[in-house]
Structure formats: structure tokens, C-alpha cells
Write a protein that binds this DNA or RNA. Structure first.
Ligand SMILES: [Zn+2]
Ligand SMILES: [Zn+2]
Ligand SMILES: [Zn+2]
Ligand SMILES: [Zn+2]
Lengths: 135, 135
DNA sequence: CTACATACGTAATAACGTAACGCCGGGACG
DNA sequence: CGTCCCGGCGTTACGTTATTACGTATGTAG
């Protein structure tokens, strides 16, 4: 993986990334917009443009099954491989992990099919340990 | 049109499933709606309600990264485990496969975390063999 | 008959996402 | 210096995806 030291964030990118980091969990683009109205945000595009860059930089991940975005849980966001997410349907907590062995098997399949892989989405839905306790 | 096996489908469910089967690939809910206007469909909810049931029956899968739906490629739709999808970004072809070994590793992770798994989304984006030919 | 469950039809609205326009500031380069 | 280009930005308007709310019809159990 190339070591992507990435340029200073623009003001809007920093605001959006700050919102996601502070939230400590997933936010939709429109939720971010609402959080940033006091900072001058007025339209969805301002959020989506910043999110596009942050995703490109690997600092933010998109959760396809939620139509939401979450700050990468890796400190400093040094580049990492494919991320996977466990999403609790009770409490909404999202845990990011790196499914290296599973990815290796998926890549075996893509190679055998001649499929050139560019991006992988792995999202597990269920109930986290906290929400599982019988009470 | 298409096969009907499995639970007795209602008229609307059969129409939606037929559209997806005939398409041989993913369709959005609104694309299905347009296809079925001549059959009397007038509103998105008619499509979404049918899709909900078809997904519940395992006859249709939702592609989260496309906001689209696809008929299960297992003819007869005998029950199967978690499905995974390779989506060609050039030609749009979607290949369904069963990532049993990768799922087993993902389940190892969920067990170790006490996460109770209910649904899994695995979607690979890239370029299929056809679209990869040097030419 | 009543109560409940399931499917359905329709209208309206919410939630998510993008196209198109123009403006501005900074860097390349003649 | 002037001019060109380009990335980021702000705004309007629009397109796409999904749900809420309400009412109807039908079948079945008690
Ligand atoms: Zn990450
Ligand atoms: Zn939880
Ligand atoms: Zn399937
Ligand atoms: Zn292709």
C-alpha cells in the first residue's frame, strides 16, 4: 500500500471530519449538514464534496447499508487494507475491523474469476455483546 | 416470465419477481415500478412491499452499494447461506457466489466479539473478466 | 359477528444524492 | 506582469430512493 500522507484538509473537510470524529459513530450526510449549519454550511453538496475527499484519503468510510459515513477508527488513519464493519441493530454501535484472512479468500475467488477488484464492502448486521446480555 | 416455486407469491410479488428474473441483473425499485406500470403498478410502495417479502423469502437480494435488487441466481432458490456479489463497474454484470470459507472466518471474528450475526453484506466492486480483456 | 392478520391502493413527504452554474484564489508559464 | 488553468467553494434546482399515513378488501379464528 502506498503511504498516503495527505495534504492539509480544507476548512470544509476539517469541519466534516471533526463532526464524524466527535460523533464517534456513523452520521448521514444530512445529519452532518445539520451539525454544521452554525459553521456556515447551507447545502448537501458542501458535505458530499468533503466526504468524497475524506473517503478518498481513507480517513472516512462509507457504510453502504446505512447510507452513512464513519471516521476511520485507526489512529492517525495510516493507510490500511479493506475495512469491515459490525453494526449493532439495537444500539447503533459500529465496530471496524480488518478482515485480512477473509479478504485473502475473497481475492482467491476474484483471481479465479478474472475479476479485477477495486473496492470491497463487508458489513455485518446483528447485535453487539452489550445488547446481547440477557439482563 | 419466470418460475414460481417456494411460498405462494401474491400477484404483486410474482410480478416483481418476474421483472427481476427477466432482467437477469439488478434493477432499482423505481425501474421495476416503470416496468410494471402496464400491469397496474402506480406507486413505489407496491414495489417495496413486494421486495421486502421476496428478500425475506430469500428469492431476491438487495445490493446495498447499488440501491438495487437482484433475483437470486440459484435457480429454484433452494435455501443458501450468505451470498456475496461481484459487481462489474464497466458493464454492470453482477455475479453471485457463496463465500463459505470467508464467512467462516468472519463468524470467527463475531464469536470472539460476542456479536450475534443476523445479516451479512459482501459486495466486491471492480472489473469483470470480459471487461478486462486487453484489446 | 367480531377481532385480528395480511395484502393492497394512493397520496404525500422524507431522506439521500447530483447537475449545472458561477466565483474566487493560487500556481504555472509566456 | 498578465493570462490560463484548476481545485475548492456557494447556491439553486433537480433527480432518485424510501417511508409514513390512511383507508380498503379479504381470510381466518374464536
Ligand atoms: Zn479504517
Ligand atoms: Zn448494541
Ligand atoms: Zn442467492
Ligand atoms: Zn464487465
Amino acid at each position: 500500500m502506498s503511504v498516503e500522507t495527505h495534504p492539509e484538509l480544507t476548512k470544509n473537510q476539517a469541519l466534516v471530519f471533526g463532526s464524524l470524529s466527535d460523533a464517534g459513530g456513523p452520521l448521514t450526510a444530512y445529519a452532518i449538514l445539520d451539525l454544521l449549519r452554525d459553521s456556515g454550511f447551507r447545502a448537501p453538496l458542501q458535505v458530499y464534496r468533503a466526504l468524497d475527499k475524506l473517503v478518498e484519503y481513507g480517513m472516512v468510510h462509507r457504510l453502504e447499508s446505512l447510507n452513512a459515513f464513519v471516521a476511520c477508527s485507526h489512529k492517525g488513519c495510516s493507510s490500511h487494507g479493506t475495512a469491515a464493519f459490525a453494526i449493532c441493530e439495537q444500539c447503533g454501535v459500529v465496530s471496524e475491523f480488518t478482515p485480512d484472512k477473509a479478504m485473502s479468500l475473497l481475492r482467491d475467488w476474484t483471481r479465479s474469476e478474472g475479476f479485477q477488484l477495486s473496492r470491497t464492502t463487508i458489513e455485518l448486521r446483528g447485535t453487539c455483546r452489550q445488547c446481547n446480555v440477557p439482563n
